[in-house]
Write a protein that binds this DNA or RNA. Structure first.
Lengths: 97, 97
DNA sequence: TTTACATATAGACGATTATCTATATAATGC
DNA sequence: GCATTATATAGATAATCGTCTATATGTAAA
């Protein structure tokens, strides 16, 4: 995944809200929809974009599909951007406890 | 500057090419135009977006205006994104020699 | 197998955006 | 002042994108 696609994937208010919601916990699509001001198809649309960008993981359980943000991929994308355009500045990843 | 505006500013192929060009050296608008496949007004347009996002510095010398990428701001934006959406991963900035 | 529920997809539509041409502004030299 | 060069701005246009409604797909329960 290149830096343009990465930045485009995260460069939308609705998607960032979704990212915040399923950043630290699994959420079903309905749960996401319930907390956003847009329709379910719109949420599904944005989830697809995030999925295609590798930014979220999905897991089906029964009728529901749970999404979680892929924090590693996100951080990797940030590092890629910094490496490419800010070579004089060093961004290091340290996994927290 | 919020993370949406930051991601939108860098989420364009033409702008990323400009960012690459004036990442490590000052370049005048004409010099940038010469290395890109778009017209001068288009380059000016993208420079304005990068300027508004604080991603480039400009310096007038005579008739020419020289642009440089603001690597610190860029790296800061990357960190902001990681902090907000990947709180379990720690991205630290280390200034290189 | 029908019904109900959860999610995805298709298609339409308005808004935003990237590009262009034409023109304005700014700086320099004659 | 006038001409020249460099950059910015205005306005038009086509393409992309985000949102909606309608509908299809998938899963589980009756």
């Amino acid at each position: 995944m290149n830096t343009v696609d990465f930045a485009k994937a995260i460069g939308d208010e609705t998607r960032q809200k979704i990212m915040s919601l399923c950043c630290c916990r699994q959420l079903s699509v309905s749960e996401i929809v319930a907390q956003m001001g847009v329709t379910q198809p719109t949420v599904s649309h944005h989830l697809k974009i995030l999925r295609d960008a590798g930014m979220v993981r999905m897991e089906r359980r029964g009728k529901e599909i749970y999404y979680t943000l892929n924090q590693e991929r996100l951080a990797q994308g940030c590092c890629r951007v910094a490496e490419e355009f800010a070579p004089d500045i060093d961004l290091k990843i340290d996994s927290k406890a």
